[in-house]
Design a protein around this nucleic acid. Structure first.
Lengths: 339, 339
DNA sequence: GACGGCAATGTGAACGGTCACATTAACCGG
DNA sequence: CCGGTTAATGTGACCGTTCACATTGCCGTC
């Protein structure tokens, strides 16, 4: 068995070359699947690589090619189910394509931190960027920086048509709203996410569009911050005002708080008030009552993110069908009862 | 204003040197805060760097130092609240220390995938590793590989004392159990996580230890898989068998399923059965009833992870107090009612 | 006042790949 | 049978840093 030569260091391309009796360049060609290389030679080189347990040195390669094979993910609130799932799927998809992923978590409200995080990622030499919790202001930070980098965000704001992966939040919100309308509700309130979130905005738009299509006047949305607490507060207010028979919440966590507050106020769900959520987190089917909600396929979202981003990096065209979320009907919605 | 020279490329250390009228090595010294450099020279170099918007090239540095300034995180089930929060905190803490973090998400049951992920991280040249969802088998995979790398896991299995960050899961579990005992419960069941998870194991140990201290016979734990669904199934079984007055669930999500099943079976919580969870996820206080649970401080956990790992990398000693979780009493527990 | 020592800086060679270009041998058509 | 093309491989430079080892002055000391 051939010993690795002078084994203070990891074997290099030249060690492999020497043992295989070829030039270092030939080894490099094997590594990069160059077409004109004799199968026999290739095999011999591969054998030596295996024997030495050779690993190409990423830094050396990155130095000369100035390609890092790394993608960046900029995320706010990654502890939430949706973003966390997306990040997971993105990482897997990227890894399958041979890319590394570097995720940076920021407080989406701190512009300085966003900039610092961006600098951090650029220092790393990322080739592309996924923005996974696109508050409008994160988006602005990107653009203001005049970023050359290919990047992908959820849901276009319309300001820069490319680079945006459409999850059709609007249609999702319309489906939730239509479900309530079809049950016979006419006094429906929307509990929105923070207004500087692109998704929150899109869901409001969908909600209003559907109301309008039904000939109903739009109602002013309540605004939460995605947390169950904010849902609870909104629920208290709804119970107090007592003028609606259904609520469409922009995510499941707020819907949970909503359920809690309504129950505390002695109201029955869905008897007195129907509630629809958004996301279909794993807990949603075990809420009390089990929550009717709009399911987002975060895994598929992550895969598409990477497909789109890699297409941008490589300059190949990408098909871009929007991803449409599905309505999942459970027990938190019912027809309004007659007064 | 001085123009960047021949601006096809990013400015290098030599560009800076030329313009500042020093040698490239002097620039390098400024970069690395070498002691013997005249303040005046240093300032001049820094000025030029600023002007050129110079960025040190990580790849070149990594190539020569063979230090990547990158840490790896190996995670299973990162979409769950606990792991996701930990990862977030780890990344922030590492970034504050100038490290990059590369997270890889795997299916913890697929040994091949774990190995592949590890290879992926090693290819990257990580300097240290955090294992964030330590199924026993992940841990074994590490050790079997004879890994040289400094690494940190949650909770020692005792097989290799170092490298383990103690979250004192045992004490946490004891506190939950003691709370039930103090309320007067004697027939208590534990709903455990998958038995190959180190944390699941520790919570079982804590549960049994506390029962034993109270002079009660240990009961066989039910086993779930952390999901609400598995909690639901366990709840159905408990309702059917009807011989316990309290359940300690190894996480909050399973506790949610449990609550659901008990309610479906017509049992009142906490009237008929008390339930305690573990983690204190943000939803827990809005469950019905609001869940008594054990709070883990994931942020602190993440920070400690990095502190410990960096200490291992740098060879400095690290203090290692165990992190002790707190019991949060809400409405899902009460004294058993007299039969 | 020659000399050791230190502070401040410079010089050239790595690091481990890829790139551009050179070289060789085989093949093919006229 | 010879020039041109092509497949297969080799040669040396280069990417942007840091490292090891000079090379300067300048100071204090005996």
């Amino acid at each position: 068995m051939t010993q690795p030569p002078a084994s203070g260091r990891a074997p290099s391309i030249r060690d492999v070359a020497r043992i295989a009796g070829v030039s270092h360049q030939t080894v490099s060609r094997v590594l990069n699947a160059h077409p004109s290389i004799r199968p026999e030679t290739k095999e011999r080189v591969l054998a030596v690589m295996g024997e030495l347990n050779y690993r190409p040195n990423r830094a050396a390669r990155a130095l000369v090619t100035s390609r890092s094979a790394t993608l960046g993910v900029l995320s706010a609130s990654s502890a939430q189910y949706g973003p966390a799932s997306s990040i997971r799927a993105i990482e897997r998809a990227a890894r399958a394509e041979g890319y590394f992923v570097n995720t940076v978590n920021v407080d989406g409200n701190d512009v300085d931190e966003i900039q610092a995080a961006l600098t951090h990622l650029l220092d790393l030499g990322i080739e592309g960027l996924v923005v996974i919790a696109p508050q409008v202001r994160v988006f602005d930070a990107l653009v203001s920086r005049g970023l050359e980098l290919p990047f992908v965000t959820m849901q276009s704001t319309g300001r820069r048509g490319d680079h945006a992966l459409s999850v059709d939040q609007i249609t999702g919100a319309r489906r939730a709203t239509r479900h309530l309308l079809e049950l016979g509700h006419t006094r429906i309130r929307h509990l929105a996410g923070p207004l500087d979130w692109i998704e929150a905005e899109a869901r409001i738009v969908g909600f209003h569009a559907e109301l309008e299509a039904a000939g109903l006047a739009p109602s002013e949305p309540l605004v939460g911050d995605w947390t169950p607490e904010s849902g609870y507060l909104a629920g208290q207010r709804i119970a107090r005002e007592g003028d609606v028979t259904a609520v469409f919440s922009a995510n499941d966590q707020m819907a949970l708080g909503l359920l809690h507050a309504l129950r505390d106020a002695g109201l029955d769900v869905p008897g007195d008030v129907s509630v629809v959520g958004f996301d279909d987190i794993p807990e949603a089917s075990h809420f009390w009552p089990p929550l009717t909600t709009v399911r987002q396929d975060f895994d598929e979202f992550g895969r598409r993110c990477i497909a789109l981003l890699l297409a941008a990096i490589r300059g190949t065209p990408a098909e871009e069908r929007a991803l449409v979320p599905d309505l999942i009907v459970r027990a938190s919605t019912a027809p309004p009862h007659a007064r």
